[in-house]
Amino acid sequence: MKIKKIYFPNTVREAVSLLGKKNSVYIAGSTYSFKNIPENTEIAICGRDLPISYIKKDQKYLILGAGSTFDQIEKNKLCSSLFDGLLSKAASACSSQLIRNMATVGGNLAHLNAFNLFPVLCSSLNANVRISLKGFSKIISWKELYLGRYKPGINCLITELLFPLNLSRNKFYFKKVSKIKSSWDSYITVCFRADIYKKKIKDLRLSVGAVRALPYIDEALEKDVIGKEINTELIKDISSRLESGVLSLHANSEINSYRASLAKNLSTDFLSGLMED
């Protein structure tokens, strides 16, 4: 690569004005970009000095600045208390301390990859994302990042992740499991959420990560069980349907069938725990 110019913008506005230049690349935490920079890159735009590394709460949302690192999230009091500490727990399960020190949530969302943690968390917690474009910023659903219109680091910048606080009655569950700790091939991440009121399911989200680029969810299943009383039979049904769904993603893959059985067992574990509550 022949980098000719390097920018360290210190306002979002400035950073956005630099995006989209020919042969430019945006570098957030640097765990991904630098080793994957296209050969023709001439301009590097570094997010290092942007004021987007905060974690705060307002009346509606828990807000993670996109420059927040996994280490910050793991150790932050809001992240370790809200949503049953789900975000801290998940951040702590990410890769290694060295990666957690560098990797940012914005980068994790921007480079869609089956192994990234934040898509599965966003999917489970109905997250929104604030993006800045030339001249304005807007809030979109996290999923819209992958529909082709918004290209983080190219025509927009992810500046915040917004987790709605209206899930207070929910119970949360996060697990990252693999056959062996360092295996990239066999692991699965699950992020589950359920609102059970008077033994009846009011809301359910079973999000399974690391099985494909976007997390797997079965919206029909989640809709079907609303209003139903939680019991052993229902749990068995839900878990089996989740297993079948994951299995259908890669029918002849041994690793995928292992993941599918994990999805079944972990969802059973989660839902059984709720029944006991």
Binding site: I3, I6, F8, I27, S30, T31, F34, K35, A44, C46, R48, D71, Q97, L98, I99, N101, M102
Partner: peptide, 15 residues
Amino acid sequence: KKATLSCIIPAFLVD
């Protein structure tokens, strides 16, 4: 103050 992987970060980032 943070332990960092020097093999994956560009030198220009430590300016």
